[in-house]
Nucleic acid binder design. Sequence first.
DNA 1: CGCAGGTTTGACCATTTGGTCAAGAGAACC
DNA 2: GGTTCTCTTGACCAAATGGTCAAACCTGCG
Lengths: 182, 182
Amino acid sequence: MDVFSQHGFRGSTLDQIAKAAGLSKPNLLYYFPSKVAIHRELIDGLMQTWLDPLRKMQADGEPVEEILAYVLRKLEMAREYPRESRLFANEIVQGAPNIMDKIEGELKELVDEKAEVIENWITAGRIAPVDPYHLIFSIWATTQHYADFDAQIRGILHPEGDSHFEAARAHLDTLFRRMLTP
Amino acid sequence: MDVFSQHGFRGSTLDQIAKAAGLSKPNLLYYFPSKVAIHRELIDGLMQTWLDPLRKMQADGEPVEEILAYVLRKLEMAREYPRESRLFANEIVQGAPNIMDKIEGELKELVDEKAEVIENWITAGRIAPVDPYHLIFSIWATTQHYADFDAQIRGILHPEGDSHFEAARAHLDTLFRRMLTP
DNA sequence: CGCAGGTTTGACCATTTGGTCAAGAGAACC
DNA sequence: GGTTCTCTTGACCAAATGGTCAAACCTGCG
């Protein structure tokens, strides 16, 4: 995870991975059949963790709070699992060659479902009208940005550790609360 | 640009680049001394174009409209120059090894300057209070997302060509207008 | 034409890299 | 102790890759 998330698939070598795992290269290939297999395993494990917060957005909750809770959970994930976020980002930026099936399947299904939930909230006048898909994209973009573009953010803010995440939390809370409150 | 933006630095080969440029490999290396030199040249040229829209955000304009114009210009760039955006994204996700100096120099300077402009607008009560840095991060995140995560967005929306950009424009306009209107 | 400049390329090289293999440790069970 | 099964590794291989070089190919000019 360390190696792939930092260098991308092509940029990572088996030697690097083996060293990071404390194994010799042949030993690594004793547990995994190939480099792509290691990568696939990481991505597969990731997909579930990644979609979980969105799954937890319940139609029967208080709409604004449900969505806000999703935003904050996603931000928390960007802080806790930046490597996972970057692994994912690397993959998508390069055209998602290995996970397009998951995107068009599992992910699209879930997003379609939640978009309908949001649509219903709008119809019921419980949140302000928004394009549910683009709302979700905005949530992904703003939260994952803190993991994926970490290098840039640190280069500008020079924060101590993760201290800037509190300001990020407050900012995103305000941003989406204002957007959604009817 | 095609090759580097799609595969990242390590993932691109001189053969690929030469072929895309319609040159033989030795001929390519007749014009550029090395692979890194090609990459550096692309990134250098990019940096200016990239910062330009932010530079154009003028302190003496109407605050909300100035910021909104910046958002839309940035979104327009994501549509017009997705390769450039992805080249940049690839670089930052991997820790910005080649451009950290520019980020901590040129970029930070400009952002600090504009953050102060925004701060002054807030003090004058002309826009709602926000953390100017995180506002800028949100703008970068939401707009570049349409270029960097293009594969994901297309996998979910299946738009015809760039047809989804109009909805994106409307969505981001609403999002930031609500955020900023006092 | 001859020749001097820049331009283009096939062949080549050293290194890196994904992956194999046979042989050697350990552990477990008889 | 011996045997078997799992685990580990040094040595090796073929392909890919960044880069070199000498020779060939223009193109303009006297």
